[in-house]
């Protein structure tokens, strides 16, 4: 089991427990005023950088649920879930998959669900669902549908710091699509929402996340290491996507044809024998069955091989090996 001394960086906020000796500590001192700008302002004045999160980092959560706002901001800034220490326990959220796809739901609702609530006490006038050990598989299919498809979600977490963080991470995973969609942090006693952008529904954790992402991007514009990394990604993205498709085992019907076999045949009932992937003139490609939008070489390699952007850049720029994803499917 890991201990706090295994971490290189501990992040504290108001009311957090002390960090152990020998671990670098950053204190986020919240300022007066609006909670969202106060949280991001505390990150700015603390001097945190994206590079800090290359080493193992942990958030030391204060008692109760109010550490969630800071945690949401840190997740946005780090671009991933970070571990947390709450109620004397290390919660290894960084090892969890961001995507809650494996939780089954009961299907997309027939009518658009503008507002919903997860957590108790249930409120009148809002569709409410619960999570927890009493639910089959932690999340019932009905609850998963509401959490996943509600356009706006109020989350009423338990009082315990540990349970509230666990609930947040689970809800965030269920709501995640191509990007995160954090819920509102609510008490359950807010008035019935009257509009999509009703400001009375609690603290918009998604706005906290977006502000933190914006701050990270501002930092990235100034850092040399970021530009080197971006340069390599750009270089890989400029490689002819047809070359990448061949290295993934894909082929086209003819040398001048733009229709290619999708290199993710396992996602197609017939292994995509009818070549549904279209290559566009802007060096991007899209399979209508697999992709919501056109993908460049880096994102295609990421999705097909399940690797990180750095690995995708290495795959494209530093290697000529063929990983034949199409041959694998034919014999499976």
């Amino acid at each position: 089991m890991p201990t706090l001394t295994d971490y290189a960086l501990a992040i504290r906020t108001e009311g957090s427990p002390p960090a152990p000796e020998g671990v670098r500590t950053v204190d986020l001192v919240l300022e007066e005023g609006d909670v969202i700008s106060s949280t991001v302002g505390a990150m700015r004045s603390s001097g945190l950088t994206a590079a800090d999160f290359r080493s193992p980092a942990i958030f030391l959560a204060p008692a109760g649920r109010h550490g969630l706002v800071t945690y949401a901001g840190l997740c946005g800034f780090a671009g991933r879930r970070i571990d947390a220490y709450a109620d004397g326990v290390i919660l290894r959220f960084s090892r969890l998959h961001h995507d809650g796809g494996p939780f089954p739901d009961s299907g997309e609702p027939d009518e658009a669900l503008v507002w919903a609530q997860v957590g108790e006490p249930f409120a009148d006038g809002v569709r409410c669902v619960a999570l927890g050990p009493s639910q089959p598989g932690l999340v019932s299919p009905e609850a998963a549908t509401v959490i996943r498809y509600a356009e706006r979600l109020r989350m009423v977490p338990p009082d315990s710091s540990r349970d509230s963080l666990a609930m947040f991470v689970l809800v965030a995973a269920l709501r995640r699509r191509s990007d995160d969609r954090f819920p509102f942090l609510s008490t359950g006693e807010e008035p019935v929402p009257v509009a999509e952008d009703d400001p009375e529904q609690g603290i918009d954790l998604e706005k906290v996340r977006q502000e933190a992402v914006r701050y990270r991007l501002e930092q990235g514009e100034d850092t040399e290491s970021g530009s080197h990394h971006d340069e390599r990604i750009r270089e890989a993205d400029a490689v002819d996507i047809r070359t990448l498709l061949r290295r993934l085992g894909s082929s086209s019907d003819g040398p001048d044809r733009d229709e290619w076999r999708c290199p993710r045949p396992r996602r197609h009932w017939n292994g995509d024998e009818d070549s549904s992937m279209h290559v566009y003139s802007d060096n991007r490609a899209r399979c209508p069955g697999c992709d919501a939008e056109k993908l460049g070489p880096i994102r295609l390699a990421l999705d097909v091989l399940g690797i990180t952007p750095d690995e995708a850049a290495s795959f494209i720029l530093d290697s000529d090996r063929v990983v034949d994803m199409c041959a694998v499917r034919e014999d499976a």
């Binding site: 690995e311 290495s314 290697s319 090996r321 063929v322 034949d324 041959a327 694998v328």
Partner: peptide
């Protein structure tokens, strides 16, 4: 054997 070849190619290509 064929799958090991695929794994090796992937391991080499992604360092």
């Amino acid at each position: 054997r064929r799958d090991l070849d695929q794994v090796t190619a992937f391991a080499d290509a992604t360092l």
